[in-house]
């Protein structure tokens, strides 16, 4: 099986999530190859899990004030703040049959590629079931997975830098005022590449590409017209719609 690898791109939240779904459809139909992609989010955005409530999880007025996009993902899990400067996101999309049937084991496999990338940078990372990667017992990466129509989509984020103040301001972590104590408590639970390595973001991305492709038959590719057209359709018709945004 030959993988397609699409290098670091930047899109808005709606197109990013629409691309994941369009590729999933393409892989299912046989018109897209199994794909690994890396991307950034611009504008910055908050994504919520498929089962979450936008109104419950996201400080909508603050997002509007800061120009932060909001989106519901196709995958479960929690709310994530995607900062353009402070994050690298990946997606892996391929037939479910090539992964372990056990969901935790499939997280372990794909997260293992990310762990290898971090280890190659000298960062002692470890997979922590269900879907996290930790460095010195602090979370540096989270992933989410869906299996629909025989296709597995897993996407996840690697924290390169941390902007906890903005993160807390756009998430309804608590109705309380954002306090120094709250920030300190989060700093005890969350970490980022910059706190463990001098590697620049480009270097980190290159380490990830190496780790994700190691031992695989792959070629560096891009999107076909069908994928782009479908992604545009999904971005506008689904992911930007209130019906999807406020599904729960």
């Amino acid at each position: 099986m030959k993988w397609r690898v699409v290098g670091l791109e930047t899109h808005d939240a709606y197109f990013n999530m629409a691309l994941d779904e369009a590729i999933s459809e393409g892989v299912r139909a046989g018109s897209s190859p199994p794909t690994i992609r890396f991307y950034n989010w611009e504008p910055n955005a908050v994504s919520i899990g498929y089962f979450q409530s936008m109104r419950d999880e996201v400080n909508l007025p603050m997002c509007r004030e800061l120009g932060v996009d909001r989106i519901r993902r196709w995958t479960g899990g929690g709310a994530v703040y995607h900062d353009f400067e402070g994050e690298i996101t990946y997606s892996v999309i391929a037939p479910v049959g090539i992964f372990p049937k056990n969901i935790i084991e499939s997280y372990r496999l794909i997260c293992g590629w990310l762990v290898s990338g971090l280890v190659s940078l000298g960062i002692e990372a470890e997979f922590m079931p269900v879907n996290d990667i930790l460095v010195k017992n602090k979370k540096i990466s989270g992933s989410a997975q869906t299996r629909r129509g025989g296709i597995l989509l897993q996407h996840g984020t690697l924290l390169y830098g941390l902007d906890l103040k903005t993160m807390f301001s756009v998430l309804n972590v608590s109705r309380q005022k954002i306090t120094d104590k709250m920030i300190k408590s989060a700093e005890e639970r969350v970490t980022c590449v910059q706190l463990h390595s001098d590697a620049g973001k480009r270097e980190v991305y290159e380490a990830l590409i190496c780790a994700f492709t190691e031992g695989k038959d792959y070629e560096v590719g891009t999107w076909n017209e069908g994928e782009l057209a479908r992604a545009r359709e999904l971005a506008e018709g689904k992911y930007r719609s209130d019906e999807w945004m406020y599904l729960r």
């Binding site: 089962f51 409530s53 269900v130 989410a144 997975q145 869906t146 299996r147």
Partner: peptide, 8 residues
């Protein structure tokens, strides 16, 4: 609602 996973 919540931050759980459920397949499908």
């Amino acid at each position: 609602t919540g931050d759980f996973f459920l397949h499908p």
